[in-house]
């Protein structure tokens, strides 16, 4: 297993957001996490890369075991350098150009030289067909372009896992397609991905495993066909029947 979570718990005040999550991710696996808003999907991702600290739980990443409730600073940095994240609101650095957004992590996270970082960043931009925008600031780019640069910024770091937090939720519908296309390409290259998404068609098309999340727990998981066509749990059935989308 590449990543293993055991008994991940998180509480905000009296709200139990994560009630003991167990999750194992194989190398190259694409996992889609679906579920209603507020069910703890995003919180789980944020706990995995320590943007928030869990109340309990252990994580084993590349055989390295980390207490998620009390990670050392070194473990936090190590984990972040093995994972990358794509945010719902892109979060591109507003004071950096597209190229700098991508090279910054290489220079200051991975100690690469500026020249090497820029070469790699240019290549990553080219992979998302945005090399011609390399000197543009985020404010000069559309939401879709920003998110594709967000994806390039994540993948250029050559991470073990890329975490996607609802990467298309903030986009205009017409821009969603290009972002999903880049994600699909990434999956085809064998990148391990955990994708929190409301794009059921994408989950069905690309994910090796679909996990249905509700009330801070994994309710059901399996192949896309299993979860979408033969949901076992009543809560999953209710969620899927409430979705208007054709998946």
């Amino acid at each position: 297993m590449l990543l293993e979570l055991k008994n991940l718990k998180k509480t905000f005040k009296n709200n139990h957001v994560l009630k003991g999550i167990d999750l194992a991710v194989k190398e190259g696996e694409v996992i889609a996490i679906i579920g209603p808003s507020g069910s703890g999907k995003t919180t789980m991702l944020r706990n995995i890369n320590f943007l928030e600290t869990a109340d309990a739980g252990t994580m084993t990443l590349r055989q390295k075991r980390i207490d998620m409730a009390a990670p050392t600073q070194e473990q936090v940095l190590w984990t972040r350098r093995h994972m990358a994240m794509v945010f719902q609101n892109y979060n591109l650095f507003k004071n950096k150009t597209a190229l700098e957004n991508i090279s910054e992590g290489l220079i200051f996270g991975q100690n690469k030289s500026k020249e090497e970082a820029e070469t790699l960043a240019s290549r990553a931009l080219d992979q998302v067909d945005l090399l011609d925008k390399k000197d543009f600031y985020p404010s000069q780019l559309s939401g879709g372009q920003q998110q594709r640069i967000g994806i390039a910024r994540a993948t250029v770091l050559n991470p073990d896992i890329v975490l996607f937090d609802e990467p298309t939720s903030a986009l205009d519908p017409e821009l969603v397609g290009t972002v999903l296309r880049d994600m699909k390409r990434l999956a085809e290259r064998g990148q391990t991905m955990i994708v929190v998404t409301h794009q059921m068609a994408f989950a069905r098309d690309v994910a090796d495993r679909v996990i249905f999340f509700a009330d801070g727990q994994i309710i059901e998981q399996g192949s896309a066909d299993d979860v979408f066509d033969h949901p076992q749990h009543e809560r999953t059935q209710r969620f899927l029947s409430a979705i208007a989308e054709d998946y």
């Binding site: 972040r80 994240m85 979060n91 591109l92 200051f108 991975q110 994540a154």
Partner: peptide, 12 residues
């Protein structure tokens, strides 16, 4: 989100 993005690309 700017700070979080900096952290997740591996900056200290």
């Amino acid at each position: 989100g700017q700070y979080e993005a900096a952290l997740v690309v591996g900056m200290d």
